[in-house]
Design a protein around this nucleic acid. Sequence first.
DNA 1: CCCTGATTCGC
DNA 2: GCGAATCAGG
Length: 159
Amino acid sequence: MPALSPTWTDERIALLRQHFEAGLSCREIAADIGVSRNAVIGKLSRLNLTRGRTSDERKLQDRSFAPARAPKAVPRLQYQMLATIYGEAEPPVILEAIDEANRCSLMELGENRCRWPISTPGADDFCFCGNASPDGQPYCAGHSRLAYRPNSRARLMRG
DNA sequence: CCCTGATTCGC
DNA sequence: GCGAATCAGG
């Protein structure tokens, strides 16, 4: 296969649409495809697939819990994400196991099956995760836990 | 404080 | 057309 890094090909756009329609966040989409959040958003905007301006209706940030003296040594999932990707250190919580052996076709998908699109770079076999997913959840625990944190918004302002 | 989405802008 | 930088909202 060519050593060149393929940009937005049909497969990637397909995944992009799938994840987008699935209700996943741009961060998660980007994490799966392997691009930056902005890249996903940029492509979506170009495809006119935007959900209609800064909706931000998820609001799943959950600020309800305000533990006194919260031992929040880490901002968020950043540490976990990094440890998972780099495969070193021991994160407080490991990602759920993702069984690729249960992958199935679209027609084999059930209501309690993970609908995560499995796309292998260089291959043409397009399947779905097919793992057991909790009720109401489109994906299994492993894929639902997918998280990616592109660090640093602390850009200096050019004056 | 941090996160997420959309647009703007340079390449 | 692509993606980082930037802006805007929560």
